[in-house]
Design a protein around this nucleic acid. Structure first.
Length: 388
RNA sequence: GCGCAGGUGGCAGAGUGGACAAUUGCACGAGGCUGUAAACCUCGCGGCCUUCGGCCUACGGGGGUUCGAAUCCCUCCCUGCGCACCA
């Protein structure tokens, strides 16, 4: 049952499927590798897809091995888009990791996972080791990577460092003797490179790893992959209310995928899309907070958006006592942390309401008192709190 | 190193001495319609203001020409292409 789930649910591709299935059924304890990125300490739902897969392996008694790319992270990973990534110090990597693990623990059992910094082996191997590693693949093979090929065709640059990356990452598999490696579909090339590198280092490795790729999920815009930089993500530490709201804003087309990759329940059939989404949102919020909070968030959501009432627990806006005479413009600007010009536009566009009354004069200095509710746009509510 | 072509707002991409805070598309924001979905329609989208208007800062960095520069000149930095090696 669990084996079946591992092999099918939320899976994009398995290489080599038969081999892996055989090993899973053999009862062997497998070492399952997952590389994590020390540059982004904040996890969003997109990250959980692969973590959930790892969790399934843990539940089946296998050993999770998390690889922290501290070494590669410190050199600065230019892969992916053109923007050069910032280089992280050792300290930053450590801090990020702490946050990462704390958040990941909502999905996997961190205590039972092995955590390894790849600096531990790459640091020792030195230039000689690097050159040895460089022999494990040909330039042609490396350039087959879609991303590289595309960029070459577009005359965008591909650095030598980037070409080395798949190999360095692949060597991690040798170092930790990985039996299986997990990753998003975007990682397929690198994961396969791990197999090649393992083959090259032969006896030192435990054989070639099997590879499971999981789908990348689109973010709240429904188009681009969920990512922090695009801003279409749903963070797993977000407040229940916010998380719920974001999930409800996701386009319907994503429902099936979200149910499959982000939850353990199956998408209900014949239900109104909105109700499916409510179920989805409640389920997911329940997973990262608690069923009670999820229920609360759901009720709150229906109340505020379906019925248009003010929420129970809006974001608080603190106002100092001597600022009580502040203009509406100023208040809106502070609340939304947007420029005054933008705030002015919002007011002009009839997006600002105070206690349910439309406010259109930026210069007005509304008499504020504790508990007043400021509404900006459709879904931003702020509760006024006068502080001494 | 030499030659050529470029570097414009979050991105793409116009503009090539005054009418440019800069056409347009995407993204984004607000309003409408809805199910805070999609699609669609309208408006907005550098900053600041006493806003049918005014001011400031901006077109890779610096300097210059001019009444006036994103637009011309010099210089520096960056990118791509070609040449130079293989021939």
């Amino acid at each position: 049952m669990l084996i079946q789930k591992i092999l099918t649910r939320g899976v994009a591709e398995i290489i080599d499927h038969n081999h892996l299935e055989h090993r899973l059924r053999s009862g062997e304890k497998l070492r399952v590798k997952l590389g994590i990125d020390p540059t982004s300490p904040d996890l969003h739902l997109g990250h959980t897809v692969v973590l959930r897969k790892l969790r399934q392996f843990q539940d089946a008694g296998h050993q999770a091995v998390l690889i922290i790319g501290d070494f590669t992270g410190q050199i600065g990973d230019p892969s992916g888009r053109s923007e050069t990534r910032k280089v992280l110090s050792e300290k930053e990597v450590k801090t990020n990791l702490r946050h990462y693990l704390a958040q990941a623990s909502k999905v996997i059992d961190v205590r039972r996972a092995e955590v390894a910094y790849n600096g531990r082996w790459h640091g020792k191997r030195g230039v000689r080791g690097l050159l040895e590693l460089a022999k494990s693949a040909t330039v042609q093979q490396i350039l087959k990577r879609d991303d590289f090929e595309k960029r070459l065709n577009e005359n965008a640059d591909v650095s030598v460092l980037e070409m080395l990356y798949p190999l360095l990452q692949g060597y991690d598999s040798v170092a930790v003797k990985a039996d299986v490696e997990l990753g998003g579909t975007d990682q397929k090339f690198n994961l396969l490179m791990g197999r090649r590198v393992q083959r090259y280092f032969g006896p030192a490795a435990a054989g070639e790893q099997d590879v499971i790729t999981v789908p990348l999920i689109e973010g709240t815009d429904g188009v681009r992959k969920m990512s922090k930089s695009v801003g279409n993500y749903i963070g797993i530490t977000e407040e229940p209310q916010e998380m719920f709201g974001k999930l409800m804003a996701v386009p319907d087309a994503l429902l099936t995928k979200y149910f499959e990759t982000l939850t353990d329940i199956d998408e209900p059939q014949g239900m109104h899309p909105k109700d499916k989404k409510l179920l989805l949102a409640e389920t997911i919020v329940g997973m990262y907070h608690s069923p009670e909070k999820a229920k609360e968030a759901c009720e709150e959501f229906i109340k505020t958006f379906s019925e248009g009432a003010a929420p129970e627990k809006p974001k608080n806006l603190l106002i100092l006592k001597d600022m009580k005479d502040a203009s509406l413009l100023w208040i809106v600007s502070i609340a939304t942390s947007v420029s005054k010009s933008d705030a002015r536009r919002l007011i002009n566009q009839k997006a600002v309401e105070l206690n349910g009354t439309l406010k259109t004069d930026p210069r007005e200095t509304p008499p504020l008192k504790n508990g007043d509710v400021l509404k900006i746009g459709k879904h931003r509510f702020y509760k006024i709190e006068i502080k001494q």
